[in-house]
């Protein structure tokens, strides 16, 4: 029994790591999908010149990012986080200037970054090998 105990502890740790990894993938996926959805709405509103709606949707995405900033720092490469933050800041200033071309380009870059962030945390053959 004494030899079996560490075996089960190790199995439990592995199971906990698998669960944590899986949960992390799911959480990042849900958060990035949510932010991307808001950015897409914001882009569509900006193209139509509805800047109030565009700013509101963009703020929702930015708030989600800020609310989970600490979590992102724990699980994602810090360089990636810095780049995301500067893109959010850049898009925010274009929204303020109501420059739809630059705003759309900037938020499109953010959407791509978010999809990369989500993709990097998923378990698939491409990521493993």
């Amino acid at each position: 029994m004494r030899t079996i105990k560490p075996f089960f502890i190790a199995i439990l740790i592995l199971a906990a790591l698998f669960t944590a990894g899986f949960m992390n993938g799911q959480t990042i996926g849900q958060l990035s999908d949510g932010m991307d959805e808001q950015l897409q709405l914001s882009r569509a509103a900006a193209v139509e010149g509805r800047w109030e709606d565009a700013t509101e949707a963009f703020s929702a995405a930015n708030d989600t990012w800020k609310a989970h900033e600490a979590y992102f720092h724990v699980v994602i490469d810090h360089k990636e986080i810095d780049e995301m933050e500067s893109l959010f800041s850049e898009a925010g200033s274009y929204a303020h200037q109501q420059d739809s071309n630059r705003y759309c380009t900037s938020t499109a870059c953010l959407s791509v970054r978010l999809s990369h962030m989500k993709e990097a945390q998923q378990m698939n053959w491409k990521n493993i090998f």
Binding site: P6, F7, A10, L14, L17, G21, V74, I76, H78
Partner: peptide, 18 residues
């Protein structure tokens, strides 16, 4: 992130124990 190091190390130690 530190977790990127801790995660594989814990995995290795668990595998080694098993």
């Amino acid at each position: 992130p530190l977790f990127n190091g801790i995660f594989p190390i814990l995995t290795l130690l668990s595998l080694s124990m098993i």
